[in-house]
Design a protein around this nucleic acid. Structure first.
Length: 254
DNA sequence: ATGGCTACGATCCGTAGA
């Protein structure tokens, strides 16, 4: 089973990139983030035409998440129980026997800002939500844009980023609280090239300079992690005209 | 030098992303 996660930064704009990439990468399940469109505008038929069922939790202009699968999606749930949120950031479904959660974690804007406080509250809720999901679903994957670079090696210039949003100690602690539940960052289960990131700033020739962060992750529960045979980031779509600022991440399970 | 780009929904600039 090949599982992917991709922050497409507007599904409307990126649909051609997505369908091309699906044909090339052949993932079985895909978690999408930042759809930036409402459910009524979700391109369900276009995705079905290329072989994917879908479940979406969309929102106009901002946020929005979805799960695509080549097989049926069962027991779809949206949001996090007990956490009231105007932002559509979480959708879950069972596909190919695996409980899959697509997450678009808050950006946080700046350390100490209101949005940063929201990010930390949101992560606390995510931890509680995933702890409960783990009890229900031994085979659990959590995939998406976490907006946290877990370690300095996930940052192109750790000195320049020190203490900034995405790498601050409280955000990293919030991320460690997830791995502390037993969720493994599949990318780090394998030898990886240095400085392989999943996001690059549109500005300042970020991609050309490889000035990036690894903030998109696929986490796997203990049982699922045992089945993980590889995990990669595909930078190719970032080279296209009018790309998303994020690259898709992939994990392969036996 | 603390910006630079992109998407969106509203205008011809503000909000948001990261």
């Amino acid at each position: 089973m090949r599982l992917a996660a991709w922050n497409v930064n507007s599904l409307k704009v990126r649909l051609p990139h997505l369908t091309d990439w699906l044909a090339k990468a052949q993932p079985d399940v895909v978690c999408l983030q930042e759809l930036k469109l409402e459910d009524a505008k979700f391109p369900r038929a276009e995705l079905e035409a290329v072989g994917y069922q879908s479940a979406c939790y969309g929102q106009k202009t901002y946020n929005g998440v979805a799960i695509l699968a080549r097989t049926a999606l069962q027991d779809v749930s949206t949001g996090m129980p007990g956490f009231t949120d105007d932002h559509k950031r979480v959708i879950a479904a069972t596909a190919a026997g695996v409980r899959v959660v697509s997450v678009y974690c808050p950006n946080g804007q700046a350390v100490g800002s209101e949005k940063y406080e929201y990010k930390l509250r949101w992560f606390a809720a995510l931890k509680d939500y995933l702890a409960a999901e783990l009890k229900l679903h031994p085979e659990l994957a959590v995939a998406g844009d976490f907006n946290v670079a877990p370690e300095d090696r996930d940052v192109h210039d750790p000195k320049a980023w020190e203490g900034q949003v995405h790498v601050s100690e409280l955000e990293r602690a919030a991320h460690r609280a997830l791995t502390g539940l037993g969720l493994t960052d599949t990318f780090r289960m394998f030898d990886q090239p240095e400085k392989l990131f999943s996001w690059w700033d549109y500005r300042m020739l970020g991609f050309r300079r490889n000035a990036g962060l690894r903030i998109d992750h696929i986490l796997a529960s203990p049982t699922l992690a045992k089945r993980c045979k590889g995990s990669t980031i595909d930078r190719e779509p970032r080279k296209l005209e009018r790309p998303s600022d994020h690259a898709p991440v992939l994990a392969e399970f036996s």
